[in-house]
Amino acid sequence: MCVAFAGLVRKASLMLLVTMMFLVVAVEHGAAQGTVPPFPSQSGPENTLGDQSDSDIWRAIRQGGGGLPGSSEVTDGVLINADGVWWSQLRRPAGPLVRFGSIGIATVLAAIMVFFVARGRLRIDGGRSGRRVARFSLAQRVVHWVMAVVFLLLGFTGLLLLFGRAFLIPIVGKTAFSIIATASMQAHNLFGPIFIVSLVALFITFLRGNSPSFSDLKWVVRGGGMFGGHVSSGRYNAGEKAWFWTATIAGIALSVSGLVLSFPDVLGTHDLLHRAELLHAIAALVFVGFGIGHIYLGTIGTEGAIDGMISGDVDENWARTHHDLWLDDMKATKGGAADGRD
């Protein structure tokens, strides 16, 4: 989609250039001839008194005036989109979106590496106890991993579409990139609706325990214990809650803007599409950036964390290390034993 629109933007810029040249020629021509109208007239000479200026018409068109576009999916009655220039500046390979976006992702990766080197793996206090506590239901696990696969597919194809022109063309060349880009676009559009369904399912299955509470403040103030010391936490800590709500909000933004971009002829004007694409890109960068952190902390970053999302239960000492308040709750209500089925 992005590629198609980038093309459109280029086409629009080209049209603008040609039009302006034509304008210049026509005006000069008109000035030379004095009475020749810019367009062939059907019934005698018009505008003989000169009350209508060609430059006014073209200026109006140039600034987004009405008319019938020659060929476009978007029939919003705009001949030349005045915002196109702004957009093309923002979105071009060396533009701010690509520049700041890639810097952002690189920063997240670097921060994780620094954290890993400095702090290492977050260990279970006292090691594994061998006792298990049920944490995630089968429904939660299935929904989570479906979302994870969809996230990876959409993430890779989306990043290819956003950064590909800047980073991939120099490596693989334009022909190969055009193939990668069309394939990515098809896959990206296809998995979009599955993302929306997964997002709704994810929200429903993970909402319980994710509402903010007072203890979250303490957790934030003490840096989540990631830099040493123990911080009490319920079923989810403030970081996890932040991820839940960020994913929810960014996910909604991605869903809505994605739908707009998927149906340009039904829903969009050029302006709306530009804003949707900008929103889509920013929300995606936030989602991916946070997602990378989540993947790190859920796998190599935290000993024993992945257990909960695979088998559904976690080690009791893991629970005490990271979610002591939740463990106390579990012990009070269920005796703390994994029941094997959910």
Partner: peptide, 9 residues
């Protein structure tokens, strides 16, 4: 995807 993911979890 749902059926395959379930094979793991």
């Amino acid at each position: 995807l749902a059926l395959w993911v379930r094979r793991f979890v």
